[in-house]
Design a protein around this nucleic acid. Structure first.
Lengths: 361, 361
DNA sequence: CTGTTAGCGCATTCAA
DNA sequence: TTGAATGCGCTAACAG
């Protein structure tokens, strides 16, 4: 624990025999003209001393941190990829991204992270539709820091300028329609209550899809958190009365749940997709490798992060590059209000293809 | 973009009719005696103005950030959980944790994050065995910031005081032995070259396990990155000559790879575990839900993060609580050098239980 | 082209 | 019990 304190700009100036202002100039590659000789001497001094600029001092002085904060519900799957992509994106604009996880929607942890980011005076924030209550968030975020939400619905436009959402409703509508088209006699949605807005969107879309079907169809909304996986499966199987023909279609909150249901089907000798058809969401790597492979929805992470970054960078008064500017305009044109919807595409696999698998022939 | 600048301690002082020193005192020096009246006035002013302390200024003044940095190879699975746990742990000691992902072992990104963390003058660093070269890291980290490594091997003791590692070698040894004991005629290890140290540890342990077997046994080391999943399976099947009796045992770098191999087996009508037995690593949620479920190794995230936190906090000169102190001593006692090894436990499932599954009866 | 100087927001002696 | 003054490391006019 020796830790002699790191060299400062003053040490560098002394070492190079110039003033601190000059050092600052060469560090920040300012426009001001400087003799090559001076630059060389300063740079030498910097490497010789192992100088590293103190960003706290820099930010304090600049009254600008060039730092952005991202709050995620957790680091897994889609969200992790989201974070990495967004980091790359904003780095291209000279911003740094600090990522925090609410460790599974824990409002307390979330609040802590938010508070910390605010105290650090980040220039902007990106957050999922939070676990914290909206008023509580509003109070924290206040009018202050630019905030872009992703996958959050019904945020008042005065606190959130933009919400960049995946069209879970549309996807769910499609899923329901697809299952019905495949001849399912019954369709159910298996959700997770703590999915919050994302869950509600799926429900709304699912119901819409069911409603669009020509004839009346047996359906149900199930909660996996409440019923458990086995409970969901049982409930699903008994919805339409056990005698009717055709498989039961189950559309799940995400691939993880779909996979668990799949395992439960194996356990009970229920054939997929003959007796039960499954559609998940997220298109996780394991969805493809499952047996039978799971039909799911691809997450357009690239597009979503690009849009999020574009909105935030723009709010920060920065100029966007050609591609991002174009992207923004394209989506802005087809958007009403401040909620932007990104369409999703279904990836059809064997869990919805009749006859592709027989567990117990 | 109005953003009137946030209130400072000066504003609060004015509002409360006291000096800034007094404000500072009520905020963080409750030890010094102050009249309750003053405290009340200051606190009122704070809430009235919505004052929030600027940590950059605070840290600059204190010459201490109370912030720790964590660098991960990526956010997925085990690492994500690791981050969340560690965050909780260090929060208990009054530290904040900033997490960064190298986006899949990208040395460039990793360097960027490390540099940023150092510029931010974090009090300590935690990192996986990095993607960056060791010398490059040493130069960066230098003698300066306390650094604890996890799952990193062969780091010189003068730059890394502690390395807290999972015993991948021991687990791999056990895996090989287990497969052999289950009657496998052939055992192979399917790895990922970019797993680096973690991969090498597995290889060493695997070979040791094979070597401990009484008789000579056909085995091989395969690289999934090079051969592809199909290639690995083919190679594995042909290792011992196709005629010999007993299943082929495949021990994989992680569950993801095991699952892909499992899918490939289904594809080709190869029965698991009758013809092929699989053991993965990480005990991901999908390992349990796979069909057949995958034998794997549990990751002791809690224990590992506790130890990492304890080492780092201690290096920072902080006092540990009872439990952590005890934990530290316990492990210190059984450790030689600066590399600490955490034992892992196997979770046996159907992918190694004969007869549990017949894909094509 | 280079140096002087006044902040940035806060913590912390040292006096009062 | 409170306040004035100094410094943390750096940036950004403004002079020279």
């Amino acid at each position: 624990m020796k830790r002699e304190k790191p060299p400062t700009i003053v040490d560098v100036a002394a070492e190079a025999g110039v003033s601190i202002a000059t050092v600052s100039n060469v560090i920040n590659r300012r426009k001001v003209p400087m003799s090559p000789e001076t630059i060389r001497r300063v740079e030498e001094a910097i490497t010789r001393l192992g100088y590293r600029r103190n960003v706290m001092a820099t930010n304090l002085s600049r009254r600008r941190s060039h730092e952005l904060g991202l709050i995620l519900p957790h680091f897994g799957g889609y969200y992790g990829r989201f974070a990495e992509k967004l980091e790359q994106k904003v780095h291209g604009y000279g911003y740094h991204l600090s990522v925090f996880s609410a460790a599974g929607m824990d409002p307390e942890i979330e609040r802590r992270h938010l508070e910390h980011l605010l105290q650090r005076r980040v220039d902007g924030l990106v957050s999922h539709g939070l676990a914290m209550s909206i008023p509580s968030t509003m109070q924290l975020a206040g009018e202050g820091t630019p905030l872009v939400i992703f996958n959050g619905w019904n945020w008042p436009g005065d606190v959130v300028k933009w919400a960049v959402n995946l069209d879970f409703a549309g996807a769910s509508r499609e899923a329901a329609g697809y299952l019905l088209a495949r001849g399912c006699r019954t369709v159910v949605y298996a959700g997770r209550r703590h999915g919050m807005g994302a869950n509600e969107q799926r429900i709304a879309g699912f119901l819409a899809g069911v409603g669009e079907h020509g004839t009346e169809v047996a359906h149900a909304l199930l909660d996996a958190g409440e019923l458990g996986v086995a409970g969901v499966l049982e409930a699903a199987l008994s919805v339409g009365g056990s005698a009717s023909a055709g498989p039961v279609g189950i559309y799940t909150f995400n691939d993880a749940l779909a996979l668990e249901l799949l395992a439960e089907c194996h356990e009970r000798g229920i054939r997929v997709p003959d007796e039960v058809q499954l559609i998940g969401m997220d298109n996780e790597p394991f969805a493809k490798a499952a047996f039978p492979s799971l039909t799911s929805f691809e997450m357009p992470v690239d597009l979503q992060t690009s849009l999020v970054a574009a909105f935030l960078i723009k709010q920060l008064g920065e100029a966007l590059d050609e591609a991002d500017e174009a992207l923004l305009e394209q989506y802005l044109a087809q958007t009403v209000g401040h909620e932007l919807l990104i369409p999703m595409t279904m990836v059809v696999r064997n869990s919805t293809q009749k006859g592709a698998f027989h567990s117990h022939p």
